[in-house]
């Protein structure tokens, strides 16, 4: 029996190409399942999954919860704002208490980079990273690559540009790892203040001109400007950012070929991407959301298969 090479999904960094292909092939089958009249399979009926969200989330939390329910798992939801963490409880204590209730898998979002890795070393349950600070967001990268594969047939050999706030983006880092693993060419594009120093060491190109970057690419992944993580001013004004790095219909129509536009959400309409672009046929933003459920089902199904009773 072949399965994943890992017992936790902590980051794309820890996966190999065969793991990603297995996740994609399994997600293909779950995509068929979630388009049936009855969108549910009983695979994880004896598995309990806790969703621990120490940071706000709408899409990812709903997507994970839906994926868990489509697999018939029992689901526990936890969010920091309504919990004892406010009373000073440590991460390990919070999680150990939840695990005492016989939980098999933990899906965690945490503002501190490395929190899921720390957790995986101290608890028995399988850990899925749903975003840790500015580090990784592996399921987002998997669903992005899955969506590219679905639209263009393959990820290998494709040119992908990641535009915008790369500095604060866990989506960008996981995407770079995943795209490189699958054989795509990657460039990042944005104001210098929002590109990490030494990003080239990950094997990606850097381009500061949006039009040139778009002319080069097959896929543009437009990141959200993460104002909530910015402690100083990284660009003069939102308006200036939108003028330099915002994707408009005029820019898209001026390109020599048709490209695909992605966005991990939530969208700041009119900043990194205009409404016309977000709602155009070239945007696959809602396909990404649909694929997110199928990919997360695949990840949890494959991880659950490694849990021994």
């Amino acid at each position: 029996m072949s399965g994943l090479s890992v017992n936790h999904l902590l980051g794309i960094k820890y996966l190999n190409e065969a793991d990603v292909q297995l996740i994609f092939e399994t997600a293909d089958q779950f995509k068929e399942v979630i388009n049936r009249p009855i969108k549910k399979v009983p695979s994880l009926r004896d598995i309990t999954i806790a969703n621990l969200f120490f940071e706000n989330s709408t899409r990812t939390k709903l997507s994970f919860e839906l994926a868990e329910k489509r697999l018939s798992a029992d689901v526990l939801n936890f969010s920091e704002s309504q919990s004892s963490v406010k009373k000073g409880e440590t991460l390990i204590d919070t999680v150990q208490n939840i695990l005492s209730m016989k939980v098999d898998m933990v899906v965690m979002r945490h503002p501190s980079p490395g929190a899921p890795i720390f957790l995986s070393k101290h608890i028995d349950a399988a850990v899925v990273n749903a975003g840790d600070g500015t580090h990784e967001h592996p399921t987002q990268a998997l669903l992005d690559c899955y969506s590219i594969r679905e639209r263009l047939g393959d990820v290998a050999g494709k040119k992908v540009v990641i535009v915008g706030d790369v500095l604060h983006s866990r989506v960008a880092l996981s995407n770079i790892f995943a795209l490189k693993l699958l054989g795509a060419e990657v460039k990042v594009c944005g104001p210098k203040t929002l590109l990490p120093k030494h990003i080239q060491s990950l094997g990606v190109g850097v381009e500061s001109n949006l039009k040139q970057a778009l002319e080069w690419c097959d896929v543009a992944n437009m990141l959200r400007v993460q104002n909530e993580r910015m402690v100083t001013s990284y660009f003069p004004s939102t308006r200036e950012y939108a003028m330099q790095y915002g994707l408009t219909m005029d820019i898209l129509n001026g390109l020599s070929k048709e490209i695909i536009v992605m966005h991990p959400g939530p969208i700041n309409r009119g900043v990194e991407i205009t409404s016309e672009v977000a709602d155009s046929d070239q945007a696959i933003i809602l396909n990404q959301v649909e694929n997110g459920v199928a990919v997360r089902m695949a990840v949890m199904y494959l991880l659950a298969s490694k849990i021994n009773r």
């Binding site: 029996m1 399965g3 092939e25 399994t26 089958q29 199904y301 494959l302 298969s305 849990i307 021994n308």
Partner: peptide, 18 residues
């Protein structure tokens, strides 16, 4: 996805298409 031997490690977990 409907097998009763999931996680009993004696059958493949890779699915075929429906």
């Amino acid at each position: 996805f409907y097998r009763d031997d999931f996680r009993r490690n004696d059958k493949p977990i890779e699915a075929n298409s429906t």
